[in-house]
């Protein structure tokens, strides 16, 4: 059940929601969402997995925690949306190609450098086709300005104990597998 999966990952109980709509009203991006947070939780309660994962709601969540702050039942939709993204990613569902590339590079950097490396990121992002030609041109324009300011994507140092990060990652992946069984 999707609700159980969500609550396992996020520690939130979507069933506790009584549908007041405070979250949707407070959400700064609900205007662009397929379903507002309230309806999203409702769909989760009804176990409509397909519709839930198809929606753009959790991808649009800017994690501003407005909903969390207001919720009379102490539920955090922000964390629920992280959980939904986790679930989607595991099933290979991304809202668009850009996000997919962005995520993959980020994770790669985590494991390779232990930090996010802007310089390498920009190169890889463009190389993998994370940006279309039009955006690229505009970005180059912006990039030039930034460059003039000395705001250049820089390469960040690797951390020393990279093996610790790897081991933590492996432990998480292992636990995940055990949970499934």
């Amino acid at each position: 059940m999707i609700a159980e999966e969500v609550s396992k990952i996020s520690g939130e109980n979507p069933f506790a929601c009584f549908q007041c709509g405070d979250c949707t009203g407070s959400c700064p991006v609900s205007f662009a969402m397929d379903y507002g947070p309230r309806r999203m939780i409702h769909l989760i309660q009804l176990n409509l997995e397909e519709e839930v994962l198809k929606a753009n709601t959790h991808w649009l969540c800017a994690s501003c925690y407005n909903c969390t702050y207001r919720c009379p039942r102490n539920i955090s939709f922000t964390r629920i949306s992280y959980a939904l993204r986790n679930i989607s990613v595991k099933r290979g569902i991304y809202p668009n190609k850009t996000t997919k590339i962005f995520y993959e590079i980020f994770l790669d950097h985590m494991l390779k450098y232990g930090r996010f490396n802007e310089g390498i990121f920009v190169r890889e992002f463009v190389a993998k086709g994370g940006k279309g030609l039009k955006e690229l041109l505009r970005d180059i324009n912006l990039g030039l300005k930034l460059w003039k300011k000395g705001k250049i994507p820089k390469d960040v140092d690797k951390i020393d104990k990279l093996d610790q990060i790897k081991k933590i990652y492996e432990a998480c992946v292992k636990e995940e597998k055990e949970d499934k069984q």
Binding site: A3, F15, Q19, Q45, L46, R73
Partner: peptide, 14 residues
């Protein structure tokens, strides 16, 4: 009790 029922996963349809 209402909260408890919700939390236990009982589904409420309006």
């Amino acid at each position: 009790w209402y909260r408890k029922a919700r939390e236990l996963g009982i589904k409420f349809l309006r």
